[in-house]
């Protein structure tokens, strides 16, 4: 072990994470180019969806100062990254980065992302994974960023075969990663609440 460096230790993002990562929510404008929770542009391929929910503490209360990031494959199941050398039937979409960030709202406590539904993609050993969105959650009081995944309730056959979901022993815990689908005023909305602690605690990952 001695020939390796130790990873730098994590520290909480604190209550003012918005300043650095989404300054508009902190209340000011400074950068020309801002990162946001809008992942899909007009030209992006795929089904438009909204993901929304609360981040909930150990008393059941929603927290209003969380910051979330998502990372996902495109509609064909390919990540916009040079190390995803998928087959020709999973082409890159030049209009989709697959990454976004947003905060829970100071007033409503909801977060949301407007994106497209990702495609399925294989594990490194070839087993297929169900479509999913990778989440990373940080906030005041979170000492090290929490990783989890959101799966889609309308993909029950793929979910039943997903290697990660199958690792979860308790069905009730597996359900914490599966977001129900709802049509609301013409928008497809997946509701994904993240429970940090207590009843229905979300399955978090050590990846």
């Amino acid at each position: 072990m001695s020939s390796y460096l130790d990873e730098t230790a994590s520290q909480t993002a604190g209550p003012y994470v918005h300043i650095g990562l989404i300054p508009a929510q902190a209340g000011f404008d400074i950068f020309q180019n801002n990162f946001s929770n809008q992942l899909a542009g007009a030209e992006t391929k795929g089904e438009r969806i909204r993901i929304e929910g609360y981040v909930i503490d150990g008393t059941g209360a929603p927290i209003r100062d969380a910051l979330l990031e998502i990372w996902q494959a495109n509609a064909a199941g390919r990540y916009n990254h040079p190390e995803d050398k998928a087959s020709p039937d999973a082409p890159l979409d030049p209009n989709f980065r697959g990454w976004g960030r947003g905060g829970t709202d100071f007033r409503t406590a909801l977060y949301h992302f407007d994106t497209i539904k990702p495609g399925a993609l294989p594990m490194l050993d070839g087993r297929m994974q169900a479509p999913h969105v990778n989440f990373w959650i940080t906030a005041r009081g979170i000492n090290i960023g929490l990783q989890t995944r959101m799966y889609f309730a309308d993909e029950s056959a793929a979910n039943a075969a997903d290697p990660l979901l199958r690792l979860i022993e308790q069905d009730s815990r597996r359900q914490t990663l599966i977001a129900p689908r709802e049509a609301r005023d013409g928008t497809i909305v997946y509701r994904f609440d993240i429970r940090l602690q207590g009843d229905g605690e979300t399955v978090f990952l050590d990846v």
């Binding site: 503490d57 150990g58 008393t59 927290i63 906030a139 005041r140 009081g141 979170i142 000492n143 929490l146 290697p163 990660l164 690792l167 979860i168 815990r173 940090l196 602690q197 207590g198 605690e201 979300t202 399955v203 978090f204 990952l205 050590d206 990846v207």
Partner: peptide, 11 residues
């Protein structure tokens, strides 16, 4: 109140 109590799932 913001710390998970259950073990992380290693994948």
């Amino acid at each position: 109140l913001r710390s998970p109590r259950l073990a992380l799932l290693s994948v």
